[in-house]
């Protein structure tokens, strides 16, 4: 899939405002999506200089959702639908990122059945793996 590097991730997500927890899409193909985000001090998930575990999990969920948003909007030419986390399993967090650090988050779809996908996620900072685990996300048509 060709990816426009200037694509605005906010067009691909139903979340808005300060709750948007990814900045850019780096790569997107049939099964893999990679996002990046630098942790700003005014990020709502930052306490002191630490980006919280909840922020990491939201970053993973939105990376997966952005892929579905991209497919919905640019491939299927439809609306961006709302996705819900259905399940999180064996997600290990080694450490929380600090402000100024850039997260690179890859989400690989393992199975996709109807509108539910099971994905494996890896979050790293400068090549250091800081979180990994699996997530199930369900996309629904009507809110």
């Amino acid at each position: 899939m060709d990816l426009n590097p200037d694509i605005n991730v906010r067009e691909l997500l139903p979340q808005q405002g300060r709750f948007v927890m990814i900045e850019r899409l780096r790569r997107l193909d049939d099964t893999l999506v990679i996002s990046s985000m630098t942790v700003d001090s005014d990020n709502i998930f930052v306490d002191g200089e630490v980006f919280s575990e909840s922020g990491i999990i939201e970053n993973i969920a939105q990376t997966a959702a952005a892929r579905m948003g991209y497919i919905g909007k640019y491939i299927n030419k439809g609306d961006v639908k709302i996705g819900y986390i259905g399940e999180i399993k064996n997600l290990v967090i080694e450490r929380c990122p600090r402000t100024g650090e850039e997260l690179t988050t890859s989400v690989e779809t393992v199975t996709e059945i109807f509108s539910t996908l099971m994905a494996l996620a890896k979050v790293s900072v400068n090549g250091e793996l800081i979180a990994h685990g699996s997530m199930k996300i369900a996309i629904i048509d009507t809110p």
Partner: peptide, 15 residues
């Protein structure tokens, strides 16, 4: 948070 997640459809974020 409820205004942004999601606009017009407030849902408590899973996180």
């Amino acid at each position: 948070i409820y205004q942004e997640h999601f606009p017009g459809n407030p849902v408590t974020p899973g996180v």
